[in-house]
């Protein structure tokens, strides 16, 4: 957008930054599409998991990075999505697409009323209220064994995807991978559009200065609720994909540490950048996978690394790159 930068050199920097981002993104997508057939089965699984957790981190970025609300309870929607996938397949024998839809609708059904109350408070109170809601449902899920299987969780047989006349089985790691990749990529592109849309601008205004946003005409609570629901729905989708891929749903998915993971990945990758949290989750999962193979107490090393990154680059890895190569227009 030429009108965005006044000085020609600024415009040039902006244009270059944008171009670099596009090239980097194209390369990343090409690698994600072309490389997996050549990977070992273990690494296909790992990459699939990274994409799913990346989607979960992206959902967190909408609520935190774009709307400025530190929700510490996104695991709740991840868990609801996972059970929303597992229960229809296991109990009602529904097909994968219907189960996926059910999972997303179920997470919206949770996010809406919870968000309705949670957005009435801000700052630390919001953090606390989101933790409390997720804890309440964690203990309910633990208790309701008839529904959730309690500690044991629910185990599924690999679901198949009905596509017209033929069926693709998710037993094959490669099919599973491309299925996940397609959905994650679609979600990424849709959210990228949302954050650049008028709605996304409203989120950012609220993130930057809630009081001022209200005085220029935003019904702040309504937009916070919309952001919370979008984030919850995408978190639910990632949970559903995780259940389909790992073929189980467990109460642990609702645990607060899962919410914490999204926070850490987002801070490391760069809040408010969408791609940053996905990159952050990828890097940290690979790093953890590598370190855990030779060091039992690997969380210590991961923790030190995270602290290091957050201190040296408070805006995260992508935030740092953006500063270095010109700011991408959001």
């Amino acid at each position: 957008m030429a009108s965005l930068a006044g000085k020609p050199e600024d415009r040039m920097k902006l244009w270059k930054g944008e171009r670099l981002f596009q090239i980097g993104f194209a390369v990343l997508v090409a690698v994600l599409v072309l490389a997996p057939p050549f990977l070992r089965s273990y690494h296909k699984r790992l990459l699939t998991e990274i994409l799913i957790w990346g989607l979960f981190a992206l959902a967190f970025d909408i609520i935190y990075g774009y709307t400025g609300m530190l929700s510490f309870g996104q695991a709740l929607f991840f868990g609801v999505g996972a059970y929303g996938m597992a229960i229809p397949i296991l109990r009602w024998d529904l097909n994968l697409w219907v189960a996926l839809l059910f999972a997303v609708i179920a997470s919206i059904a949770f996010a809406w009323p919870i968000g309705y109350f949670a957005v009435k408070v801000s700052g630390a109170y919001f953090v606390i209220i989101t933790i409390i809601f997720s804890l309440i449902f964690f203990f309910i899920a633990l208790d309701w064994r008839w529904l959730t299987g309690g500690d044991n969780g629910l185990t599924l047989t690999a679901p198949s995807i009905p596509l017209g006349n033929w069926k693709l089985s998710l037993v094959d790691p490669l099919t599973n991978y491309y299925f996940v990749l397609a959905l994650v990529l679609a979600c990424y592109l849709i959210t990228r559009r949302i954050v650049a849309s008028p709605l996304g601008k409203a989120f950012q205004a609220i993130r930057e200065n809630e009081d001022r946003a209200r005085v220029i005409g935003y019904k702040v609570e309504r937009f916070k609720l919309i952001s919370y629901i979008i984030s919850g729905a995408i978190s639910g989708l990632s949970g559903a994909l995780y259940a389909a891929t790992s073929r189980y749903a467990n109460v642990d998915f609702l645990h607060w540490t899962v919410s914490g993971d999204a926070v850490v990945w987002t801070l490391v990758g760069g809040a408010g950048t969408l791609i940053g949290p996905m990159i952050g989750s990828g890097l940290l999962i690979v790093f953890e996978d590598y370190v855990s193979s030779w060091f039992k107490n690997y969380p210590i090393i991961v923790g030190i690394l995270v602290i290091g990154v957050v201190i040296t680059a408070p805006q995260g890895i992508v935030g740092l790159l953006r500063e270095r190569f010109g700011r991408k227009e959001r």
Binding site: I190, R193, S197, K201, A202, Q204, A213, G217, R330
Partner: peptide, 20 residues
Amino acid sequence: ENIWAAAQTKKGFLNPLVHS
């Protein structure tokens, strides 16, 4: 973007699928 944020509030519906 500061001024943009103010300029769009009179639109009743903020379309999430159109680029600003």
